[in-house]
């Protein structure tokens, strides 16, 4: 039986968010699955698969209120062991401007590229921001097709490389 829920928590970053949230779940008999937790800007964000009995929102209400976190719980389908191994990596670097992600993602979609993971950051300085993005995903299209798809994006560097996962 699949009883997983996706829990989203967002709030101003401070020490103790992970410890207090997971402690509350643990004390109430909940288990954690896959999770992604990261500081974005001055915020801390948690996306986490959880499973257990009862009402997760109720369990986490006190700690969410104490830490001023926005909490959201969704019932989800699909549990653990659903990993897909990426076969292509796309690295993007350019002076920051509007539309970089939309253009790169749109070009990738045209060759049937499924984004499995995307991380982006704004580096540089406030007056000269630089956009850096790293995408991993899967497509049946040939590497050259992916390269061609992103080759028209002019002012940004887009490097496409195969990911050959070593199993040993």
């Amino acid at each position: 039986m699949n009883n997983w829920k996706m829990l989203t928590l967002v709030g101003e970053d401070r020490p103790g968010i992970v410890a207090k949230v997971t402690e509350a779940l643990y004390r109430n008999g909940w288990n954690l699955g896959e999770a992604s937790m990261i500081r974005l800007g001055a915020n801390f964000s948690i996306m986490m698969m959880v499973t257990g009995e009862g009402d997760a929102e109720q369990i986490l209400a006190p700690v969410a209120s104490e830490l001023k976190l926005h909490l959201h719980v969704d019932k989800i389908t699909g549990g653990l062991h659903q990993h897909r191994v990426p076969n292509i990596q796309v690295r993007v670097l350019g002076a920051d401007r509007a539309g970089i992600v939309a253009q790169v993602a749109g070009a990738l979609l045209n060759v049937g590229f499924n984004i499995l993971e995307l991380e982006s950051d704004v580096a540089g300085s406030s007056d000269k921001p630089v956009y850096i993005m790293n995408i991993e995903g899967y497509t049946d299209a040939a590497l050259e097709q992916v390269e061609n798809a992103v080759s028209t994006l002019g002012d940004i560097d887009v490097a496409v490389s195969p990911i050959e996962t070593l199993i040993g």
Binding site: H81, H83, T165, I167
Partner: peptide, 12 residues
């Protein structure tokens, strides 16, 4: 580079 292992199933 990305790696996985016969001794570590379902993780890369």
């Amino acid at each position: 580079g990305r790696e996985g292992c016969l001794s570590v199933p379902d993780y890369t």
